[in-house]
């Protein structure tokens, strides 16, 4: 409703990780090109609810505001996405903001996604180099392969794929699409491939690739359009071969 003069926000809040959640509603003057972030900034400047109650400003996480850092991920009108690209004019009102539900809550809309970074450690998501000293050029890589890798390396660890995954939950240890896709990325690189077996072993266990239930919501909600299900299938193939190798060739 572009003629509307106000924005109506409904925000799920919680003061402590073990506290109780509650809802607060805010009404803000509509500004051109407003997004959810600018609304939250407005609340910081005027932290007063619709009912006129003075409250603490809403706490959330953000940084780049250009959809490349992944920080401002939250559940907006029921779907997980980045708040910076959530344009108010494109959203039905009231705009409902909730924290991601699959990660431990810190406060209000701010959650702790450390689990994703821990998973990157488990799968050795890096290229093990000899050292930083100048030993000349890197490996020659065909542009086509590079372009494929680039798609995967745009993953900003935002957690959308995990929030929307029916298999991923707070009380299990499923690693999820983003991690599997990173395994594929590093296994694709000529130097990274040298640690392929260690990476595959790390995801051939509890919470690993076999737990994927193929609901394919990950690929639908990925803001970077990363071919996550392709990665899952590719890793499925690599782990299958690894299993056969482990069973019959060792």
């Amino acid at each position: 409703m572009p003629d509307d003069k106000t924005i109506h926000l409904k925000i799920k809040r919680q003061d402590q990780p073990d506290g109780k959640s509650y809802w607060e509603e805010f009404e803000l003057p509509r500004k051109p090109r407003a997004n959810v972030i600018s609304c939250l900034m407005d609340i910081q400047m005027h932290p007063i609810t619709r009912e006129g109650k003075e409250v603490t400003p809403v706490v959330w996480e953000c940084n780049c505001l250009e959809e490349v850092c992944g920080a401002c991920t939250m559940v907006i009108n029921g779907k997980v996405r980045q708040a910076c690209t959530a344009l108010v004019d494109a959203l039905p009102q009231p705009i409902v903001l909730e924290p991601m539900s699959k990660f431990p809550l810190v406060r209000d809309l701010h959650v702790d996604r450390s689990r994703m970074f821990e998973n990157l450690k488990k799968v050795k998501a890096w290229i093990h180099i000899d050292g930083t000293y100048d030993i000349g050029e890197g490996p020659v890589i065909p542009e086509k392969q590079r372009a494929k890798a680039y798609l995967l390396s745009e993953c900003m660890t935002c957690g959308c794929c995990l929030e929307a995954c029916p298999q991923f939950a707070k009380d299990n240890d499923f690693m999820g699409a983003s991690t599997f896709s990173q395994v594929r990325l590093f296994n694709m690189h000529p130097t990274g491939a040298m640690e392929q077996e260690e990476r595959l072993d790390a995801i051939m266990g509890e919470g690993g690739i076999a737990d994927c239930g193929n609901a394919q919501v990950c690929v639908e909600v990925c803001p970077k359009k990363i071919p996550l299900t392709e990665s899952i299938a590719e890793i499925g193939r690599e782990t299958t071969l690894q299993l056969l190798k482990n069973l019959f060739l060792k």
Binding site: G78, K79, A164, P166, Q167, F168, A169, N172, D211, G213, N214, A215, Q216, V217, E220, V221
Partner: peptide, 17 residues
Amino acid sequence: VAKTNALRYRYPRNWMY
């Protein structure tokens, strides 16, 4: 183990799941 969410994320594959 599954936490179905097809009512929220209404994609064909999710219904299949």
